[in-house]
Write a protein that binds this DNA or RNA. Structure first.
Length: 597
RNA sequence: GGGGCUGUAGUAGAGUUGGUUACAACGCCGGCCUGUCACGCCGGAGGUCGCGGGUUCAAGUCCCGUCAGCCCCGCCA
């Protein structure tokens, strides 16, 4: 049996990546993992790594034979401790690529604290490894520099958030994780109760109701960096458990909330990546965002706006456009400057792309010296062509793309296409951060399946004061005191002013088709609380994971979370979720309808 | 629930029209080497081609099914 060396009274003095030229001449004691051993027969170099980086250990048999021969046993990922003197590297051997490249540690004593199996992949920044293998060995993947950087930055951001919000008078308060299921919105994760057989808790989709209770309690300004849970399908930017920066404030208006949050976001960007965010941030109404960009989360790093040409084609001979225009639909266009060079294949791909969002097709026009080169050119008169060219600012070399459909489809399809083209053509500067608030969302949207209005945000969202009369006459037109913060085409946060007036809240439930009894059953505790002197209040929640994706440049939310789930919501490391034994089910009073075999 | 992509030594890949014993790289093991730094040189080991079935004289390759991972639509108050 080969025993490891004991730590004994050794104390680490520095981290590897911190030992730079200013420490030359000092004796140091370092501990970490062996990145690589380079054995030159005589001299041995060991690159020693910890979370701060890598430093070179030099083991010369002429200086200390014992440590040199111990170094011969060392392999990748062994855990070692080393004592030695920080020395300048000999002339001509400085490595300018390394932060610690001007120095090396002349080792006089070496301990092997632990050995390691050969890892399934190299712990470096070069190895490209299938994500399933990275996730199975996540503890090794987390040793690699990229994830170390991301999680260290995540810590700094969380710390910045706490400092900033504390400085603004916010108090961090924990809310329950075992809470009540309210089947509005996303599906809940349910937790059975052994003590109350047949009853279930739900894991919170957000602390929404509790933070409103805290306002009633007078805490005035609350925040929490908090895990939330939604049992829905995953995406590149969606995990079943995710982290929110959750805030709620009393005695404030929308503008007050937006201002204090702009301060928080700009402080985060300054602290994390040294970027100065221009304040105040841009603001767009929901209606304007849809009109100009087709979506409520536009990427404002590039122009390329949607142009409404419905009026110009309503009388044209092109039935596809004219019928849509005559039937309350929208015909909108993008002018992709200088892209008349697109191939037939590329145009077909763009057509396939808009079909994903329900568009029936994509009409295209290449603007040439001889006029429109397009399958649809023949349907328009010279006057109509001139009017369209003027409206679209069409010039030779431009590519015009059209979608005609009901408004929701035309906007979404063309808006997504805009984002897609921004990517494809590299229109968005990677180092640019364009924020915008989206305001004045509709309060309701009509659910065709359930044949009733549903809340766009949640049922406690306050309408715009000037729209309150519309609740009785035209609820579909009522706008909400809700706001999202959008960054580079990604929704990173959203919130609203809440209803603190019982009459308005009752009317709201009525319109949502929630009767008094149902409202009592689901939200009785909140309604009770609101009746005991609720202050005007509102709040917001930011998706910390999404913010971190943008700050780190990660393509996947999994790269900013230490132990993420796969698309099927599984943890490849722990193999959760798993089946449980019959005894556990019995105690919970649960019998499964189907037993997977 | 639906659409798409991927699956070959430990890792990431090549593998032609179905045709001998499935390749080279990195890693690993052994040897050599006193200034390397993604060290170098010499030698070696390492494979249920995701899994199951089918077609065929013959399947990594073709067909069907299935599993897993990823991207997207629906879903995400």
């Amino acid at each position: 049996m080969i025993l490891n060396d004991q730590l004994g009274n050794w104390k680490r003095t520095h981290r590897c990546g911190d030992v730079t030229a200013e420490y030359i001449g000092r004796d140091v004691c370092l501990m970490g993992w062996v990145q690589r051993r380079r054995d030159h027969g005589g001299l041995i170099f060991i690159d020693l790594r910890d979370r701060e980086g890598i430093v070179q250990l030099a083991l010369d048999p002429d200086r200390d034979l014992a440590s040199h021969s111990k170094a011969e046993q060392v392999r990748n990922e062994y855990v070692v401790a080393a004592r030695g003197k920080v020395s300048p590297r000999p002339e001509g051997t400085v490595n300018p690529k390394m932060k610690t490249g001007e120095v090396e540690i002349e080792i006089s004593e070496l301990l092997i604290l632990n050995r390691s199996e050969t890892p399934p992949f190299m712990i470096d920044e070069y190895a490209e490894v299938a994500e399933s293998i990275r996730l199975k060995h996540r503890y090794l993947d987390l040793r690699r520099p990229a994830l170390q950087r991301n999680l260290l930055m995540r810590h700094r951001v969380a710390k910045t958030v706490r400092n900033y919000l504390d400085s603004q008078g916010f108090i961090e308060i924990e809310t329950p994780v075992l809470t009540k299921s309210t089947p509005e919105g996303a599906r809940d994760y349910l937790v059975p109760s052994r003590v109350n057989t047949g009853s279930f808790y739900a894991l919170p989709q957000s602390p929404q109701l509790f933070k409103q209770l805290l306002m009633v309690s007078g805490f005035d300004r609350y925040f929490q960096i908090v895990k939330c849970f939604r049992d829905e399908d995953l995406r590149a930017d969606r995990q079943p458990e995710f982290t929110q920066i959750d805030c709620e404030l009393s005695f404030v208006t929308r503008d007050d909330i937006m201002n204090v949050m702009e301060g928080m976001i700009s402080t985060i960007f300054k602290e994390a990546i040294g970027v100065e965010v221009a304040l105040p941030m841009a603001r767009l109404t929901y209606a304007e965002a849809l009109e100009r960009f087709g979506v409520d989360n536009p990427d404002l790093r590039f122009d390329l706006e949607l142009i409404n040409i419905t009026e110009l084609v309503v009388d044209s001979q092109f039935k596809v456009f004219a019928d849509v225009a005559a039937g309350n639909g929208l015909v909108k266009a993008l002018n992709v400057k200088g892209s008349a060079t697109f191939s037939r294949k590329e145009l077909d791909d763009l057509t396939d792309f808009v079909k994903i969002y329900g568009a029936k097709g994509l009409a295209w026009v290449k603007v040439t010296e001889k006029g429109w080169q397009s399958p649809i050119a023949k349907f328009f008169t010279a006057d109509e062509l001139a009017a369209l060219n003027r409206k679209l600012d069409a010039q030779v070399g431009d590519l015009l793309l059209f979608v005609a459909d009901k408004p929701s489809v035309a906007n979404e399809a063309l808006g997504r296409l805009r984002g897609h083209l921004g990517q494809k053509l590299g229109l968005a500067d990677k180092d640019s951060y364009k924020f915008s608030w989206i305001t004045d969302f509709p309060l309701f949207e009509y659910d065709g399946e359930e044949k009733r209005h549903v809340a766009v945000h949640h049922p406690f969202t306050s309408p715009l004061v000037e729209d309150i009369p519309l609740l009785d006459t035209d609820p579909g037109k009522v706008r909400a005191q809700a706001y999202d913060l959008v960054l580079n085409g990604s929704e990173i946060g959203g919130g609203s002013i809440r209803i603190h007036d019982q009459a308005v809240q009752s009317r709201m439930f009525e319109l949502l088709g929630i009767d008094h009894e149902e409202a009592r059953e689901k939200f009785g505790f909140l309604l009770d609380a609101l009746s005991y002197g609720a202050p005007p209040h509102g709040g917001i929640a930011f998706g910390l994971d999404r913010v971190m994706m943008i700050l780190t440049g990660a393509d996947s939310i999994r790269d900013v979370i230490a132990f993420p789930k796969t698309q099927k919501a599984a943890c490849l490391l722990s193999e959760a979720p798993n089946e449980v034994n019959e005894k556990q089910l019995q105690e919970l009073g649960i019998r499964l309808r189907t037993r997977q075999k």
